[in-house]
Design a protein around this nucleic acid. Structure first.
Length: 479
RNA sequence: GGUCCCAUCGUCUAACGGUUAGGACACCAGGUUUUCAUCCUGGCAAUAGGAGUUCGAUUCUCCUUGGGAUCACCA
């Protein structure tokens, strides 16, 4: 006989979504999923001034990227539509009229100027401004187009929050607030309550900044005679300073930027879910399925969590290492350096295979793999600055290269054969690997680091390897 | 300023009122025949302060301190 669990994410189309917003959506989605409930996307576009064109699509793309899907929304419709607040202005007006009829709402009789003056005065007298102290004796008739205020019924509240526990506030925070603006749009304070009710939302999750306006919502629920949903207040995701909430103003990144930089959705999902939540064990890695199973709103922490890029980087690297090569290739395909377009899939896949364990995010692929696709520019400082090689006479380097060149010339470039040959060269030259292998590695890649020598040479192939070694030989002989 | 919320390693966090306060990231050291990375081992590192309740407080209560939110025709 239990009610169907319905949760929602209700962003305003005022720009992109950052990790804080996506985490709110994620938690709401997890609650719906684990209860076989429904998750709804609703667009709260009641502020025409702040609206940014294209935001709605951007929000949809962001959620899709993370893997959050909704059962009802502006793009797919549903039984409880419309899912865009600007499409249901007449509905808000009707409910506003009901409040007027009940004597619980009235047109604001003051001009903006008069209001400002009253606020000023309160400030001078060092007391909080309360509109209800200036509430008119008799209410004018509402013509539907002027500013409408809620007639509050001030009283103290104690309520239960699924995350924060018991919260309370005195009656002094309850005031007559605007529910309908003079442009015909409802305010957030009014619209979201009507919508949550009509859409039969059971759990309202939102971030901490709404905690102080909750009492007025409670007052409004009562006036409308709505059943109150379960409220859950999420702590902020903190910015780099660890003190203030993450905000676009302070450089919070668009979630889609993480996609561009080559973070996997699984890593991001895992990261976001464990930012302020854990299951009480020492488990760090959660699949989507596990998250749906194990998530619980009661275990969300009450204090803000700093967004730690280092941890995200580690997680992403972890997921990359766990991927099978075909999945990884599909994900990373578009991130290869542009010279790679001349090479076939098999070759690129080989490169990816030997680079996999040192890849942290896809967009660093070019810097890690350039020399597999383009002729590297010789950089002798790599030899000069090498701890071991810098101590070796240049003539010795030349002769080492000559011996190596001869040794590699006659063989086929399979890993096993290469490995055997290189070990043989070690004995023949009576050099330490740190000298001989470093030398070969550097002159064939001219990169500060690279994958294992044998693997790298095998992928580069015999022709390329030998030609690069010959070039190096010429270069070193000249000096 | 009024009101409200929060407080464990640098960071994310765990701990029926009883633990040598645990794990992970980061960092440092050592190991795995070159570099970088991976992997393994080890190390560094925390209950903001003060009262109270209790045989016993990270845990419960109060105060202080610190941080944050909110007081819009923004959400």
């Amino acid at each position: 006989m239990n009610k169907i669990i319905r949760t929602r994410f209700a962003p305003s189309p005022t720009g992109f979504l950052h990790v804080g917003g996506v985490r709110t959506a994620l938690f709401a989605w997890l609650i719906a999923k684990q209860n076989n409930g429904q998750f709804i996307l609703r667009i709260e576009d009641t502020d025409k001034v702040r609206e940014v064109a294209g935001s709605e699509q951007h929000i949809i793309d962001s959620l899709h990227f993370i893997g959050i899907k909704w059962d009802e929304g502006p793009d797919i419709g549903g039984q409880y539509g419309p899912y865009r607040q600007s499409d249901k202005l007449t509905i808000y007006k009707e409910w506003a009229q009901k409040l007027v009829d009940k004597g619980r709402a009235y047109p604001d009789p003051y001009t903006q100027e008069e209001l400002n003056r009253l606020r000023e005065q309160a400030k001078i007298e060092k007391r909080p401004f309360l509109f209800r102290e200036h509430r008119p004796e008799t209410f004018a008739k509402w013509d539907g187009s002027s500013t409408l205020r809620f007639k509050s019924d001030p009283k103290p509240y104690v309520w239960y929050d699924a995350v924060m526990g018991e919260l309370s506030n005195g009656e002094e925070v309850i005031d007559d607030f605007i529910i309908m603006k003079n442009d015909g749009y409802p305010t957030y304070n009014f619209a979201h309550i009507i919508d949550d009710h009509l859409m039969e939302i059971t759990h309202v999750l939102r971030s901490q900044e709404f905690i102080s306006s909750t009492p007025k919502f409670l007052n409004l629920y009562e006036a409308l005679e709505f059943e109150r949903p379960i409220l859950g207040t999420l702590p902020f995701v903190m910015g780099p300073d660890g003190k203030k909430k993450l905000s676009k103003r302070d450089g919070a990144k668009d979630i889609l930027d993480y996609k561009k930089e080559g973070y996997s959705s699984e890593a991001l999902l895992n990261f976001l879910a464990t930012l302020g939540w854990n299951d009480g064990t020492t488990q760090e890695i959660f699949s989507e399925k596990e998250l749906i199973e194990k998530f619980s709103i009661e275990r969300v922490s009450r204090s803000g969590a700093k967004f730690d890029e280092q941890r995200l980087l580690w997680l992403n690297g972890h997921y990359i290492r766990e991927m099978n090569i075909d999945t990884l290739y599909a994900n990373a395909k578009d991130y290869f350096p542009k010279e790679a377009s001349a090479y076939d899939d098999a070759y690129k896949k080989n490169v990816l295979t030997i680079i996999q364990e040192r890849l942290k995010f896809y967009s660093e692929l070019p810097s890690l793999t350039n020399f597999f696709f383009a002729e590297p520019e010789p950089d002798l400082t790599l030899i000069q600055n090498n701890k071991q090689l810098s101590k070796v006479e240049p003539e010795t380097l030349v002769s080492l290269l000559e011996v190596a060149l001869k040794g590699l010339d006659g063989i086929s470039f399979e890993t096993e054969k290469l490995s055997e040959t290189l070990n043989g060269l070690l004995e023949k030259t009576r050099q330490k690997p740190a000298i001989l292998f470093s030398l070969i590695r550097i002159v064939t890649t001219w990169a500060p680091s690279s994958p294992g020598l044998v693997e790298s040479l095998a992928v580069l192939g015999k022709e390329t390897t030998l030609s690069r070694m010959k070039n190096a030989l010429n270069l070193l002989s000249k000096n």
